[in-house]
Each structure stands twice: as C-alpha cells, then as structure tokens.
Design a protein around this nucleic acid. Sequence first.
RNA 1: GUGAGUGUAGCUCAAUUUGGUUAGAGCACUGGACUGUGGCUCCAGGGGUUGAGGGUUCAAAUCCCUUCACUCACCCCA
Length: 423
Amino acid sequence: MKISSIKGFADILPGEVETWQFVEQKAREVFALYNFSEIRIPIVEKTELFSRSLGETTDIVEKEMYTFPDQDAKESLLTLRPEGTAGVVRAYVEAELYKVEPVRKLYYLGPMFRRERPQKGRLRQFYQIGGEILGRADAYADAELLLLLGEFFSNVGLDGAALELNSLGCVRCRPAYRKELLAFLAQQENKLCGNCRRRMERNPLRVLDCKEESCVAITAGAPSIQGFLCQDCREHFETVQKLLRETGVDYKLNPRMVRGLDYYCRTTFEWTSDRLGSQNAVAAGGRYDGLVEDLGGPPTPGVGFAMGMERLVLLLGTREFDADGARPSVYFVSVGDGARAWAFPAAHKLRRRGISVEMDGEQKSLKSQMRRADKVRARYVLIVGDDELAKGTAVLRNMDNKEQVEVRLDGIDEALAERINAK
RNA sequence: GUGAGUGUAGCUCAAUUUGGUUAGAGCACUGGACUGUGGCUCCAGGGGUUGAGGGUUCAAAUCCCUUCACUCACCCCA
C-alpha cells in the first residue's frame, strides 16, 4: 500500500525548487537592503494567540485552523500557525525587543497552515514571506514596506501585478462608519444575497467585497469609508499616497477592499495579478496599531505584509534558472575494479578541495557511463581504465568542446583543481 | 463545507461516442549498432491491477453504483 501525501500538502520537487530558492534569495537581498532582520518563530503556538489576534469570528479562526490538544496537558490547545504576524508580535513582546530598540524591522519565511479546500494558488500548507515594521506609526513606514515589495517584484522579474490601496480608519473613526454602513445596508437588506445578510452581523465591511452582481449594485451607493476617516487617519493615508507618487509607484485606490483579519487598521493594501485565477492576491497586508498591546506589550504601532510563495512561483513559472551550480565539474568514468578502487578516494580528495565530482559506482559500460556524464552535464570526464592505471595516467575529456588529453595520475587533484578553477 | 470536471505506462495522450482477440504511440528509461568515448540516427527491450471496490454482460478501459484522488469554482484568503 503506497502512502501518499495528504490533501493540500505538496512536495516541491527538483526542477521547481530552484525557483523557490531564487525567490528566497531575492527576498533576503531586498530585506537586507531595507535593513530588516530575519526572525524564526515556531510553527506551533497556543491556539489562544491566533484566536485573540486574528479575531474570534474570522473564517480562519472559526473553521480553518489545525488545532489539537497537547499530549500531556489536555486543556492547552495548540495550533499550526495560519499566518505569521501573530507569532512575530508574540516573540517581540515575549523577548521584550522593544526595550532595547522599540523600532524593529523583521522578516520571516516559512510554511503556514489553513484547512481550506485546495485550488489554484491555495494549499493547506503554504509558504509565506512576510515583513513587519514594529514601533513606527508614521506613514513613511507604510510606504517603505510598499516600496520594498515593489522592488522585490521587479527584482524577481514579476510584471503585471497591480497595487490596490485603502484605509480602514482606526478605532476612533471606524465605529462611526460601521454604524452608518450598517444603517444603509439595513434599508436594502432584503435585496442582499444570503451571504451578505450573514456578513452584516459579523463584519459588515465585507459586504463591500461581495462579487454578487445585485450586491455590487446596491453597495455602489453605500457610504465610503473615505468620508469618515478622522483627521489623523486622513493625513496618514494622504501621506502614504504622496510618498508613493513621489517615488513613482503606481497604485489604485479601492475603497471596497477589506481585509479578512480583525487586527488591521488604517492602511491596507493588496498586490494582485489577473493571471492567478480566483485567488488573485500575491501579497497583502496593512497596519495593525493595536495588536502589540492586545498581546500584552506596550502600545506599539505596526505595519506588515505577507506574500504567498506558491502564487509568486506560479506567476514566475518554472523558467530555466541558471543551473550551473548543479553542474558537476568532473565525472569519473572507471573501467575495471582497480580503476573504481582508485576513483573513489580520488573523488573524495577533489571534493575536499571544493570541486564537485560525480562518479559511477556500478561499473556499467563505458558508453553508459559517458551517457550518464552527459546527462548530469558534467564539464569534464576523467576516464580511468586498468590500462591507464598501470601506466599511471588517465584521459581527461572536456565535454563541451570534446578535447581530451592524457594526464598523470600523480597530483591529479592539483591538475584538475587548476584546470577547473581557471574556467 | 457546497458544486462541477477529470482519473489509461515515469510524462503527454490514443482506444470510451457504437462493450468484442494480446490496451497502443511519442517522449523518458535500459541495452545494442560503435567489443574503451556523450549529444544525432537506427534497432531492440523493460514498464499497466485502465485510481480502487462492487454490479450488469458470453465479454468492461468503455455501461451502472459506491468510494478515493486530483483540478477548477463558490466561500475565504497570501
């Protein structure tokens, strides 16, 4: 009976993993450029961390988390992290990072878990790269994060992603808007779809995001959050936009954009692509000024984003990345037991000098060993047979230009090292 | 959680409409032509419980039922 991977959990195999490595490397580069430090946090946390930070009534907390009791303490529930921000903030508070330096720019990358029905660009274990700026309330922080993302997308060669912006207001001004919106929706409640009627109770802002045609028509006339922003929120949002314009970042305002997590306030954003099917957000995030305090830290503003790696990889495609690193420098072809006995320790010596060597251990025909060498794209082949061994020589063949020379086995590692490093 | 579509060799697909000998092809793999020299060419070979289980039938990849998996969409999100 074969065992298969479980639904929504995928392997990333050679041929595809190179794209992932490329993306990760570019991400580390851009984070370094903006002075972010990496943080590594656990994959499992207390359930309470997520229910408290994301919001009890969000879909994630209500039905998508992998939650289980710990072995010895049945009362304590654990959860596979469904997102990264909660853990980062928890760590920030727990290690009291704010005491030494309240402003922290952190990034993480790794797997997240949500038990949803898999589809294009959506898995149950999925990977995110995220960045957070903690301790800064100024609009420059928001804009910096957006610039970083734009820079990253251009560095990995992603085009066609569009940025949408909105402001959700803050604890001071959002309630008034919410009330107004609710009053508006209540007037036409019977014309809204069933979903939206449910949304009115949980999160009325979500109704704005409905794709149902009738709902879109109704909400077209709904009051806009923009009109309700308090002075501070309005100025903040205007500054963010001004900074984007000044740095030449294209964006579109989308007053209907709503985020799914309760902790967001003020600036929210989403980078989308129309090539992703229905899960079109490749990166998204926003400000979460109350979160640190909610999790037991001092009042500390924050802003962050998360990016879906499989979605990004989907967009980049498995294009050919320069696989030179995977090319062995030398392939040892040995004919005869004596030759093989010589080849094994010789390969070891070369590898210790930093030269990649592949060898055939099966003593197949010369032809098949050559084919193998060609398949793994070896630069050189060193052919050693018992005849050569007796003479103390070997044949070194350049696989790219077919030139081959006879070389002495004495000091072969030096000779090879020289030749290969010269290349 | 709901709906639809698809499951045949490692991969891409034929044969399913109209049930009928031994389920084919290309690519890939292994070997040979070339007895110690890769790619190209030619030849040969290995590889299948037709996703699984049950049913109908003289006969099932093909028809029916069940189940599983995958995919896409709803929902939601990155």
